[in-house]
Simulated scan of single mutants.
Amino acid sequence: MLFAHDTEVALAYAAALVNTQADGPRSVEELPDVAALDALVDEWGWTGERRHDELELAQVRALRPRLREVWSTDVHGVVRIVNGLLAEAQALPQLVKHDEWDYHLHATTPDAPLATRMAVEAAMALADVVRADEVARLQVCAADDCEDVLVDLSKNRSRRYCDAGCGNRVNVAAYRARQSARD
């Protein structure tokens, strides 16, 4: 494991949240309504207070472009974004233990708005990435027609494609191109 478990989960969640935004030539808005947000929150096991309303959805949607910028900037830009998110939330890191999770860091109260909790969790994980000098692990999918982001947590830093099937699609296209060239 490269980072602590909660850091890896927060990084994966941040990438998944960014990838819900309609962006690029093949993308569709994946958070069209409160029900979709509820499903995403349930899928990733977010705890704490929820409003289940349009304002909460709008706040989470507004977080996505700020997080996306992390994948297109240098370490100094990541630090600027992380420090901004933490300062806005007046984050106060504390060790907590709940559900099936052993002790890990939370930096907001459970009654903080969902978007604030999401922003701070991502910022705390990204702080670990910066401290470990691993910002290069934050990448954009290598497929020409995809703008999704990913976190390369592989030991040999070899991950190039997102989870949307791009790696398989690119490999199949390359195989077919080689077969056509032979014929």
Rank of each mutant, 00 (worst) to 15 (best):
F3W: 13
A4E: 14
Y13F: 14
Y13M: 10
A16Y: 07
A16R: 09
L17G: 09
N19P: 01
N19I: 00
N19S: 03
T20W: 02
A22C: 10
D23M: 15
V28A: 08
E29D: 15
E30D: 08
P32M: 00
A36L: 07
A36Y: 03
W44K: 03
G45D: 05
G48V: 03
D53V: 08
E56H: 10
L57P: 00
A58I: 07
A58C: 05
Q59F: 09
Q59D: 14
V60I: 09
V60L: 08
L63M: 06
L63H: 10
R68V: 04
S72I: 04
V75L: 11
V78T: 04
V79N: 11
I81H: 02
V82H: 03
N83C: 01
N83D: 15
L85Y: 01
A89K: 10
A91I: 02
P93M: 13
Q94H: 11
Q94L: 11
V96T: 14
H98R: 07
W101R: 11
H104S: 12
T108Q: 05
T109Y: 12
T109I: 10
D111N: 11
A112E: 03
A112C: 01
A115D: 06
A115N: 01
M118E: 15
A119R: 06
A122W: 12
M124N: 04
A125H: 05
L126I: 04
V129Q: 02
V129E: 02
V130M: 08
D133L: 11
V135N: 01
A136W: 10
R137V: 01
Q139F: 01
Q139H: 11
C141A: 06
D144P: 13
D145C: 01
D145E: 15
D145M: 06
C146D: 07
C146R: 12
E147G: 09
V149I: 07
L150H: 04
D152I: 03
L153R: 05
K155C: 06
K155R: 15
R159G: 00
R159L: 06
D163V: 08
C166H: 04
C166P: 02
N168M: 12
N171D: 07
V172F: 01
Y175V: 12
R176H: 11
A177K: 14
A177L: 12
A177P: 02
S180K: 15
A181F: 12
R182C: 04
R182A: 14
D183W: 14
